[in-house]
Design a protein around this nucleic acid. Structure first.
Length: 472
RNA sequence: GGCUGGGUAGCUUAGUUGGUUAAAGCAUCGGAUUCAUAAACCGAAGACCGCGAGUUCGAAUCUCGCCCCAGCUACCA
């Protein structure tokens, strides 16, 4: 029995749960369930990232304490568990006491290594916005919103992390571990980025300006920059540094993230681990983005898709099926309700739903009995999942539904009599049982319903699994 | 500008160590059928494989140039 650790990124709690995150966590959930069914001891982590400037500001704007604001949002993300039928067994919040201590401990290790140092940092500040600006936000050296005003340079002392120390070490790691980042072109992308030269990044902020963060050990005037503290969650979730046993059993693990997190996960975090003298992550799976109607989802465009709404409207498993099979695993995909409905209609309502109904009806009519079996997930499905090919795995399963349907029509099973009919129906029942077993990590509820109808010796017809969507 | 990924039937995609009529699903049309959620099954039509040139007996696949889309080019997470 192996140990398996998988974690999502921690969504930042300044917005409602996004369908892109729903996809990320459903993928992680599918892998976690598959490993559990394979007999592995699984630690599946998710949670919320709660520190930083944006949250601090949002809380101030809403007129509540930052912690109160975070509590509210953490609950919203916690709601995903039932809405998406998730099986994670740890939900970390970066404001958890243990996590805060772990982040500080991690800091000390990097500091002891000589990778953290203080340096004067020039902050670009737009008086018009009353905000600090980054270079990428500036147009011709001026604020895009206030081009008439000069950008002020404010000097501030911050702590920096010697990212530059890890340039070669990171490149060596990429070279010696093909498949560390999946898909491979992302690893290559990162390799190019690192190879082109790394700048140290700041890892703290002045507490007087932004108090909502983890206090820097030994310097009460500074708090950690949110990245530094947030990344540590992947190991603090395992009880590091106090629970050595758990940490050693489960670390390193697999990290699932979106492509916007590529650098943080595959370079910065890895360098931080090297600095702290801890093993690197095992593997990082980077997914693409979801667009809506060909455009990025945004409130102003009004094209934001709420995953919880779809789950309520069409069912959790229908949403899981869609996000796992109809969406490109590695590239960006466009998501529309029309596409969703098509996937629902073909593979679910007309596919497994209809097959289950027709076979169960015939079996019930003749009081068919089929000896019970114990079935596991087939190797082809496991292999596809290990390569993060959720789409291929489901395609493989749906292929069996097609096979069964074809068999029924070709043999005209409903016209057969006696032993011959029993023979073919029993065969069909076994196909459905295998589909149910294979489906367990992807669509746990559907898998169970199928087993309720077809798992026992006596076959019983249940209600329709997926009711067709009638278009008017 | 540089870098990365992509541009293949109406839609979503597979296919690159170059090789017989470019593959699949959905949508469309036709057939046939009724066990089933008017579902399933059989068949047909549908592609100047982004554009142009080159290498080759032969290119979706290799080379060069160009066009279009998305993203990155670092401290917003």
């Amino acid at each position: 029995m192996g140990k398996f650790y998988i974690t999502t990124t921690l969504p930042y709690v300044n917005a409602e749960p996004h369908i892109g995150f729903a996809m990320e966590i459903i993928r992680a959930d599918t892998l976690a369930r598959m490993h559990r069914l394979q007999g592995d001891d699984v630690f599946f982590n998710t949670g919320t990232d709660e520190h930083g400037q944006k949250i601090y500001q949002k809380a101030l704007e809403s007129g509540v304490e930052p912690q109160t604001y975070c509590d509210e949002y953490a609950a919203k993300f916690g709601n995903l568990k039932s809405a998406l039928n998730l099986s994670y067994n740890n939900f970390i919040r970066t404001t958890d006491e243990h996590h805060v201590k772990a982040a500080q401990e991690f800091w000390k290790l990097c500091e002891a290594k000589g990778d953290i140092y203080k340096k004067v940092y020039k902050v670009k500040y737009c008086v018009g916005c009353e905000l600090e600006k980054t270079d990428s936000e500036l147009v011709d050296g001026k604020c895009g919103l206030h081009p008439n005003q000069e950008i002020e340079n404010i000097e501030e002392e911050n702590y920096f992390f010697k990212f530059s120390n890890y340039e070669q070490k990171l490149v060596d790691m990429y070279d010696s571990s093909p498949g560390f980042v999946v898909p491979d072109f992302r690893q290559n992308e990162m390799r190019i980025f690192v190879k082109s030269g790394l700048q140290d990044f700041s890892v703290s902020r002045l507490k007087s300006k932004m108090p909502w963060g983890v206090e820097v050990p030994g310097d009460p005037t500074q708090v950690m920059y949110v990245w530094f503290d947030a990344l540590v969650n992947y190991i603090s979730a395992l009880g590091w540094p106090s629970d050595d046993k758990k940490f050693e059993e489960f670390w390193p693990g697999i990290q699932v993230c979106g492509k916007d997190n590529l650098r943080q996960q595959t370079a910065m975090w890895q360098a931080m681990l090297m600095s702290a003298g801890l093993p690197n992550s095992k593997q990082i799976f980077v997914g693409g983005f979801l667009t809506s109607g060909g455009q990025k989802m945004s409130k102003s465009l009004g094209n934001v898709i709420n995953p919880i709404e779809w789950a309520e409207k069409y069912g959790t498993d229908a949403l899981r099926n869609f996000l796992l099979s109809e969406v490109s695993v590695f590239e960006d995909s466009d998501v529309t309700e029309d596409r969703f409905k098509k996937a629902f209609q073909t593979n679910l309502a007309n596919g497994i739903g209809n097959l289950a109904a027709r076979v169960a009806t015939m079996a019930e009519k003749i009081n068919l009995k089929v000896e019970e079996q114990r079935l596991g997930i087939r190797e082809a499905v496991v292999n596809n999942l290990n390569g993060f090919r959720f789409d291929e795995a489901l395609k493989f399963i749906w292929e069996d539904v097609k096979t069964a349907d074809t068999l029924i029509n070709q043999r005209e099973v409903w016209k057969l009599k006696g032993e011959e009919q029993e023979y073919f129906l029993a065969d069909l029942v076994r196909i459905i049982r295998q589909v149910a077993a294979d489906l367990a990590p992807f669509m746990p509820e559907t898998s169970e319903k199928l087993m309720t109808s077809f798992g026992g010796e006596v076959i019983k017809r249940g209600p329709n699994l997926f009711q067709r969507i009638e278009e008017k």
